[in-house]
């Protein structure tokens, strides 16, 4: 087994475990912590896939900004932990689980067709996934989507400010 395989397997186990814990935990703060662990393991998976810049951005944007925002809001609201683990009674929950298993089985049917010769990784050069190569592609072939993403973020920022703002006295 190569180092990459060990790293990827470990990260996969951590990712699945933390994802399960996100759903299982009652407290939103603990869930958020496990989600951070999940994002970290996915960053390691990106590393094993040759996405060096991608992994750094994953930590910087997802773990460093989005999840901090989550925790900040959870702390700001500080909701009392809910008593029930799931929203519905045991029957509906069981049926949902059954549906989930069915959904997973149908997904896996598609995934399994990748096994064997059709699912080998292409061999790539040293510069695969480097900052320069990703940046060049982003600013040439994907320039318009990139700018649109900027506009999207601007709209989201304005929207967030408008939504979360307390109304000043005298406004309706």
């Amino acid at each position: 087994m190569s180092l990459d395989t060990i790293l990827a397997s470990g990260a996969s186990i951590a990712a699945i475990f933390s994802a399960l814990m996100v759903v299982w935990q009652r407290s939103a703060v603990i869930s958020a912590l496990f989600l951070v662990l999940n994002l970290g393991s996915v960053a390691i998976l990106f590393l094993t896939l040759g996405g060096e810049f991608l992994a750094a951005v994953q930590v910087l944007v997802y773990a460093g900004a989005i999840m901090v925002l989550f925790l900040f809001v959870i702390m700001l609201l500080n909701p009392a932990p809910l008593k029930e683990r799931f929203a519905s009674g045991p029957v509906v929950t069981g049926l949902t689980f059954a549906l989930g298993v069915l959904f997973f089985a149908s997904l896996m049917r598609g995934v399994m067709s990748l096994a064997g010769a059709g699912g080998t990784m292409a061999s790539v050069g040293e510069s695969y996934g480097s900052t320069r190569s990703v940046g060049e592609l982003l600013f040439t072939a994907y320039l318009y989507p990139f700018e649109l993403a900027g506009v999207l973020l601007l709209v989201a920022m304005v929207g967030a400010v408008v939504l979360a703002r307390r109304q000043a006295p005298g406004e309706d």
Partner: peptide, 10 residues
């Protein structure tokens, strides 16, 4: 995801 998180949390 960033845009969604900002608006959703708001």
């Amino acid at each position: 995801a960033a845009a969604e998180a900002a608006v959703g949390l708001a």
